[in-house]
Amino acid sequence: MRRAAVALAALALAVSGCATPYQPPPVTEPTPEGALFTVPQEPSPTRDEPDCDPRYSLPPSAVRPRLDRLRVGVSQSTPRMSFRNPRTGEFEGFEIDLVREVAKALFGPRARQRVVFVTVPFSEGVRRLNDGTIDLFAQSMTTTCRRATEIAYSSNYLDTGQTMLVRAGSPYRRVEDLRGKRVCSGASTVSVDHVRQLGVGLVPVVAAVTSDCLLMLEQGQAEAVSSDENILIGLKEMSADTRLLPDTASPPGGGRCVWNIHPECSWFSDEPHGFAFRKGDTQLLRFTNHVLDEIRANGRWKAIHDTWLPDHPDKGPPPAHYLKNATAWPY
Rank of each mutant, 00 (worst) to 15 (best):
D53I: 13
P251K: 04
N289L: 01
R64W: 02
A5L: 15
T31F: 04
S269E: 08
R128F: 01
L217E: 08
R64L: 07
G220M: 07
S269R: 04
R127F: 13
Y172L: 11
P109K: 00
K315G: 13
G73R: 07
G280Y: 09
V291K: 02
L309P: 01
A9I: 13
S61K: 01
A222G: 05
R147E: 00
A4W: 11
F94R: 06
L58H: 12
T160F: 08
L136D: 12
A4D: 11
R256Q: 10
N298R: 11
T46I: 12
G220W: 15
K236R: 15
S239I: 09
A326W: 09
D68W: 05
N85P: 00
P32N: 08
I231G: 01
S155H: 06
R127C: 05
L11C: 07
W301F: 09
G186S: 05
V39G: 00
S188D: 12
P313V: 14
F287T: 01
I134K: 03
L70V: 07
R2A: 14
S269A: 10
D135E: 04
R87P: 02
A62P: 12
R66Q: 13
G255T: 08
T20P: 03
Q283I: 00
F275W: 00
A10C: 15
P25Y: 13
V6E: 11
Q23S: 14
M81N: 14
G132V: 03
R110S: 13
A224V: 04
S61V: 07
S44F: 09
G186N: 03
G253Y: 02
D314W: 01
S211Q: 12
P26S: 01
R100I: 05
L245G: 11
P54K: 00
N325Y: 11
D159C: 06
A105M: 06
A208F: 15
V175C: 07
Q197M: 11
D247R: 10
T307K: 15
V39Y: 03
G299V: 03
D228Y: 09
A111P: 01
S250R: 05
D270S: 13
A208N: 04
A207R: 00
N298S: 03
T142S: 05
L309C: 03
E294K: 15
P30W: 05
P40R: 00
V116I: 15
Q76Y: 02
A187L: 13
A276P: 01
T149Y: 00
K181D: 08
P43H: 03
P25D: 14
R147W: 02
F268K: 04
A276K: 03
V206A: 07
K302Y: 12
F122C: 03
P310D: 00
G93I: 09
